[in-house]
Design a protein around this nucleic acid. Structure first.
Lengths: 154, 154
DNA sequence: CTTGAAACCGGACATGC
DNA sequence: GCATGTCCGGTTTCAAG
């Protein structure tokens, strides 16, 4: 993960459809070198995929919510792989705290959302928070500046 | 947004780097028709971008958290565009409830994470929940089946 | 929207630095 | 490990139906 790898990640995060040739021009590297580096980033699991991002509202998902699930012991959604297949469930995160997971849900309507809640209820108590808007949908990953501790830690 | 548009979205969400020709084979449409449909999906804002997805851990972001921000009145992070530029802040969602926003944060270390909390504290009270793992990072958007109410609503 | 043709570009390989 | 150069295949973009 040197500076050149980060330059390639920066470009591919901004536009995943760039060709190797176009990439080579932007990062000032030869096309074969670019191809091999990108292949390595894919095979080592740094790049996990290339995805088109779809606007939820324009795709008919007008109701977005974050749901904290407090599951009933062993009957946890984390143990049921079926839940991850429901179309409204976009993300599942296992978290610390009194709840066991946080879900990001995008439903087509309030009725649809109510149906999701009904389907989740058997697993535990869902606590919903509606998403009004998302001022920052997504941010590319770039290298963090090295930490310089202003106050030395004891 | 007919069936063919959804087929194109399905393919481009699964692999954003597919060529128009390869797309045309997969959805059984001619290459010019594919090119025009994709261009329309981009210009109408259905497709908002094509992004390479990076594994947070392998990119050095070992500490992931969700932070609920309860801001001090007008001094809200939603009103300060600078916050969205901090590299550790991946998402900002305005939400309902007693908090004003939910942040997704990916820091390089606990020290770095503590630094983010310190920088957030002037805006309001941050309440952090650590993400232990993410069984479902991302799910493509596909058309929802039409609702058929098993129990008629009154 | 499809077909067909032509120009272009991008990817792969081999060679050499 | 990277740059250069060549070749081939694929892709894009027209035009016409």
């Amino acid at each position: 993960m040197d500076h050149m790898d980060w330059a390639l990640l920066r470009e591919l995060q901004a536009d995943a459809r760039l060709s190797f040739s176009e990439l080579s021009r932007r990062v000032h590297l030869s096309p074969p070198a670019v191809a091999e580096r990108v292949r390595r980033l894919e095979e080592t699991g740094v790049i996990v995929g290339y995805h088109a991002h779809v606007d939820l509202t324009r795709a008919g998902r007008t109701v977005v919510a974050l749901i904290r699930m407090s599951c009933y012991g062993a009957r946890c959604i984390l143990h049921d792989p079926e839940v991850a297949g429901w179309p409204e469930i976009l993300e599942i995160h296992r978290i610390t705290g009194d709840a066991c997971s946080m879900l990001k849900v995008a439903a087509g309507s309030i009725d649809d959302f109510e149906g999701v809640i009904d389907r989740l209820a058997p697993y535990g108590q869902p606590s919903s928070t509606m998403v009004l808007s998302s001022p920052l949908h997504w941010q590319p990953i770039h290298p963090l500046p090295p930490a310089d501790p202003a106050v030395p830690r004891r």
